[in-house]
Design a binder for these strands. Structure first.
Lengths: 123, 123
DNA sequence: CGCGCACACTTGCAAAAAGCAAGTGTGCTG
DNA sequence: CAGCACACTTGCTTTTTGCAAGTGTGCGCG
């Protein structure tokens, strides 16, 4: 069941990871979910806190909603908030794992390559 | 855009997650690392197993190498293999967390949104 | 009632990244 | 020396991302 994805073929494998990235692999998706882990937020708040272009934000919110990761909560008059579904909240683990990976841990077995300074947003 | 962080301003936050995505957030990056978790592989193998465009693969391998995630092992004559560094291997946790998230767990409380079938490579 | 304002998005267009196909260089091997 | 496998490059098209400005809607106020 679901196993393989491309059985008995020399073709590319199809992993669960690819399926995950299909949903949250787009440019600002995980950052948006991360913000929402703190609780429901409104469009304007997300935009200001992340610095994400407004059209991208609108697109991502629609996609993530369709994927069942978040949903819109109608607020007063014409305002609304975005909140994670259970499936969206389950992204806390992967997100924290990524955060831990990125966090420079002092006292660990430092190795690999010397850190090179960067200075620009996601990607 | 907001390059160089935005300290002590009302501007966008700069999370560790963003730093992680800066390194492994590009289109095929995590998939490449996932393959490499099984051990060192050669260029052609990666390309065939993932179905990634060859120019993209070359670019990602260079970027991931510069980020200290993997390194090139010279093999016989002009062939080489790519292997994860310790830092790259540490991505196993985030990757497995994402895989678990994507894995349809039978018996769970179905919720969020009805699954919509897809049929195409990442993104 | 009409005006301005905040909020939540669209729209239009330019720049960057991803994708496809074909080509290049290198070192065997026949 | 021709042919072949391997590891990439190069040239061009398509898709995605980003920026800036515009649209619609519902108050709050004079």
């Amino acid at each position: 069941m679901t196993a393989g994805g491309d059985p008995a073929a020399g073709g590319p494998e199809w992993s669960d990871l690819a399926a995950a990235l299909e949903v949250v692999g787009a440019r600002w998706a995980l950052l948006i979910v991360e913000q929402l882990l703190d609780g429901p937020q409104r469009y304007g708040d997300l935009q200001r806190r992340l610095g994400v272009p407004t059209n991208i934000l609108a697109t991502r919110l629609r996609e993530l909603q369709e994927a069942g990761v978040l949903r819109r909560l109608p607020l007063h008059h014409n305002t609304r908030a975005y909140a994670l579904t259970a499936r969206g909240a389950a992204l806390r683990e992967p997100i924290e794992a990524l955060r831990r990976w990125a966090t420079p841990r002092s006292g660990g077995p430092g190795e690999g390559a010397p850190p090179a300074p960067r200075a620009s947003p996601p990607r």
